[in-house]
Write a protein that binds this DNA or RNA. Structure first.
Lengths: 205, 205
DNA sequence: CCTACCGATCGGTAGG
DNA sequence: CCTACCGATCGGTAGG
């Protein structure tokens, strides 16, 4: 039953991943001990080191799974649908993907800083791809406005990420309905708002 | 020269405050040792404990000074000026107050979690007062829209905070000009955006 | 304002 | 010769 053992192995890694994210989120990554993580998993600390070579490798695996999944799902979206507004689709998808992921979301910043340059570049690559998708959706929402000033386009897409990523702080453990509702607010705020954004006359002098 | 000694004492506390914020921001509060903080200040670790009784007291003093100053300045604003749009004034003031405060801003979340309930309530009080000012500015920007649905008003003011507080992540060490420019983008995006926000029919059914 | 230390606990690994 | 685990403890260093 080699297959079954391998499956157990993967299942256990996933269990550690989720439990560790919760411990890290509540006590901080540096502040939490591997013993606390082990206790939350119901296993010994030594057992964790059978699955992960170090605390940092565990942190990387949490963020790699989280951001990698986000990236995959966001990049798989079809934003060319004739009737569905791309920005609406995007904000809704993000907030629904964030559901149940408050812990992973929360430890992003502290975690990234702890990792090696190589590990950081992998995770930042995921983030960059998602920013690119957002950037294009924002640009397409008002092409005439943004072709004159890419600075404004970046400001708007970063504004959307600000709204999305601030959400868990004032609405932790939000329901699906709350997420869908707020996603609509962000999209409407942005789509109507871009009409009022004044463009810098970069070539004026 | 008792006065002069007291002045030196306060000056030194301020020096420690700034240096500690930088060390905490770059290595994390839990991850940074008091020896590292002392080295950054050019004094001994024991000397720091002459000014602060504990690491947490130092953390509290950093955040108390930072958020207290923000609160004072935001609450002192006159938002009834006949020609200046309140939301424009508010976003500009926030981003200018954030200038040079990236470190303090960054350690807010980790710091708050480390403090006692009593200390937390002081800092959260500052935050609550600032949220109230923002809430009123947003509400007044479209009274007819928001009197039907306070949920939407909260969503919009939290969106503004999301945009403001996300700024340092994609524009660290931004200049005054960049801050003023982005403050205008946030205000315009929001003021024009609220016209497009659809209201839930809470009483329908 | 410093050197010299402490109780405790850290991340990680030994033997079996 | 392997993987999957555990009780006990390693060398170093943290806050104070």
């Amino acid at each position: 039953m080699a297959r079954s053992q391998a499956k157990d192995h993967d299942d256990k890694r996933k269990t550690i991943l989720t439990a560790a994210a919760e411990v890290f989120a509540s006590r901080g990554i540096v502040g939490a001990s591997m013993n606390e993580v082990a206790q939350a998993c119901g296993i010994s600390k030594a057992n964790i080191y059978h699955y992960y070579t170090s605390k940092n490798d565990l942190v990387f695996d949490i963020l790699d799974n989280y951001l990698g999944t986000l990236r995959d799902r966001i990049c798989a979206l079809d934003l060319t649908h004739p009737t569905v507004e791309p920005l609406h689709l995007l904000t809704k998808e993000f907030l629904l993907l964030y559901e149940g992921m408050d812990n992973e979301h929360k430890i992003q910043t502290e975690g990234l800083a702890l990792l090696s340059a190589q590990q950081q570049s992998v995770l930042k690559g995921y983030q960059r791809e998602m920013v690119a998708v957002m950037d294009e959706a924002v640009r397409n929402s008002a092409p005439a406005t943004f072709e004159q000033c890419s600075t404004k386009c970046r400001q708007v897409s970063m504004s959307v990420f600000g709204m999305l990523n601030w959400f868990y702080l004032w609405q932790p453990n939000a329901t699906k309905a709350q997420r869908i509702d707020y996603a609509a607010t962000i999209a409407e705020l942005t789509l109507h708002g871009v009409k009022g954004v004044s463009i810098q006359h970069e070539q004026t002098g």
